[in-house]
Design a protein around this nucleic acid. Structure first.
Lengths: 213, 213, 213, 213
DNA sequence: ACCACCGGGACAACCCGTTCCT
DNA sequence: AGGAACGGGTTGTCCCGGTGGT
């Protein structure tokens, strides 16, 4: 009796596991496809049907995994911000001198670009939606402010260190973030150009020159 | 006889003028309301019905004045870019020294903000649509490249003048534009903050410090 | 004084005449353009705006001359039927022997084709609308029945004459009309073919062979 | 175990079947209602909303089953032509002598009338649209030409058989088709008349008389 | 009388996010 | 998780008037 039950349980578990795998796979597929669509066609112009068709799943599946279209968008946003957080944290941690850390931020553009799975336009979507939707605004702005503060602190540390001039760290961090954001925006619509890397490097150098002692 | 005719003509002209005025008024009203809606709710989420209702005109009137919703968007974009052009040109013209001109660019943010009738989010809409729509891309990018070139030339002039270091003017102009664009974007989502003016001034100063001799 | 008045009157008349001419011209232009449009695109798919644009007149002018779009259609129908009437009448009148008259009907196809200004598809439009619209049905069917009766009488005369077998003239006339109508319909959708003329001749001959003594 | 699985499979199949049935039912309902509407009010004057309301389904359901209004029209046309094909084929097959076959064509009118669910005016709609719409023209004309050829061959066979005179079979087949088409058209607008059957019989007899040896 | 401009508002086809039933 | 259905929304078109000039 016991063994039988055990067998059944086992089998059920295996089946469940397999089913879970399949489910997780579907989820991932939807998420990925949605990111692609939102990026290519904008959130509004992407219909749930579009996503389902490209992902090869039914609408039933979609609404089984996610309550609404918007929820998918929010999850995508969340994932992206998490990746970004991790990347930046890592840079700062692994460089000891502040100016050096800032210079390494040069690569920030690539980080942003690459997280989100190479779908840069998603960034614009997030930003764009943020100004109209409370939920998204919360998620975006809170992170963005976090970055501001983060850079502020980093600069403060640099001043203590003596490697950076005495300046208003809040304003300076804002300047840095502005430049970074601006770079992204431009890259977005001027995709042909190949020298964004150099521009970002040069720009950061210019800013650093005025900041470091 | 003459006076009579004159009167009639006058009267006719007045009437005609009134009719034209009414037409022009309607047009303006639609344009203004549309700008507001696009700014508040995004282009896609604004329906023609929305605009008409708020503007107090019928759909018949809307489609009499404009062939499509998109055309309204394009006209709005065009108007904005024209104002921007004029403002920038004026700044450069009225300041003789290049570094001074650049410093005065500080005010650029306000110009951009104001020129869209205080509807800054429209800017984001333009940018956002540009990455999905060929027509809008054309209109936006061509102008944006013009600015790049413009600043490049201004910097070149500065170098000849001797007021600016020998640098790659193309890259430097890109840095400037990037910073400006980034400022805009941030202002957009962090509307509470009051010190954007100072940040922009400070930022330009930083950039200038590295550039001028 | 008199001569002056006369001149004025003349002038007014001339002006009026000219104005009437112009008016008549506009009317004709609208009618002609409408026929073309209805023929090419079907009645429903032709908008008043279409007609006006192609005719080079304003909508104001259109609705000044005709109360509705439908009225234009009815006028066109009426003109066409009148021409058709005249043509058929003429054929019968100018041929003394009945079989000969029938044989000359061969040319009926061309008559119909030409009488609508070469716009054969209009014929289909009329027929098509007739089954849905009471007014048009009246106009069409009454004429069509007239033709039936007409042929009946002609055949009866033929029988008296001795040139035609004793048959049910009503049925025979129906056969003839059916054949004619069928020819038209086919020509309408098989416009490439060049031998409709021969087919119609041959067909009438076949029918005549069985009918004449 | 096996039986259990079997049951499950069965149950699923049954469920699936039922769902499919329901879907098919809706589809049929829409098709039938559309045929009715197109027949009563013309294709253009029938709105999708009309069809849905009468069929008792939502617009969503309509566009789930058919991509466009036109597609419904084309399917209707296709069904009708298929039925017609089958009917004609059957007549020819089941009668050994060619003249006899042709005489039995007499019933063709009824066949045409009855297929299309007794909605003869649909025939006119098809024809009418064919002259304006490439897709419909294709579908219609290809079939119509097939009939021409078919009759041609039948007549050729009759000549070999010796039951038919030596004539140009292409022209003769055209005459037959023309007569048939004309009959249809007339029946369409003169629905009161009851003797169409006799007219068609008589007409075919007349044509046959001239053709058969 | 003739005609141009401006507009009204109903309605078209088609699509969308979502729910329901199985 | 899939397939069917819902119902409201979208842009854009249409036919037609009203008002006023020539």
């Amino acid at each position: 009796m016991k063994s039988y039950k055990g067998k059944v349980a086992n089998k059920n578990e295996i089946v469940k596991k397999r089913s879970q795998d399949r489910s997780e796979e579907t989820r991932k597929k939807i998420l990925k496809t949605a990111a692609m669509c939102f990026s290519n066609k904008s959130y509004d112009r992407t219909s749930v049907a579009n996503i389902c068709e490209l992902a090869g799943v039914s609408k039933g599946a979609f609404f089984y995994h996610f309550p609404t279209k918007k929820s998918v968008f929010l999850i995508l946003l969340d994932n992206w911000l998490k990746e970004l957080d991790a990347s930046i944290e890592e840079i700062i941690k692994t460089s000891k001198d502040i100016p050096e850390a800032l210079l390494r931020m040069t690569g920030i553009i690539k980080i942003v670009t690459n997280s989100s799975g190479g779908q840069l336009p998603l960034f614009l979507q997030f930003w764009s939606e943020a100004s109209h939707d409370e939920d998204i605004w919360q998620a975006t702005v809170s992170h963005y402010k976090k970055y501001q503060k983060y850079f502020s602190k980093v600069l403060d540390r640099g001043m203590k260190e003596g490697s950076i001039k005495k300046i208003d760290s809040k304003i300076a961090s804002n300047v840095i973030v502005s430049f970074a954001v601006g770079l992204l925006l431009q890259e977005l619509i001027d995709t042909d150009r190949e020298d964004w890397d150099m521009i970002s490097k040069e720009g950061f150098k210019i800013i650093l020159d005025s900041i470091k002692r």
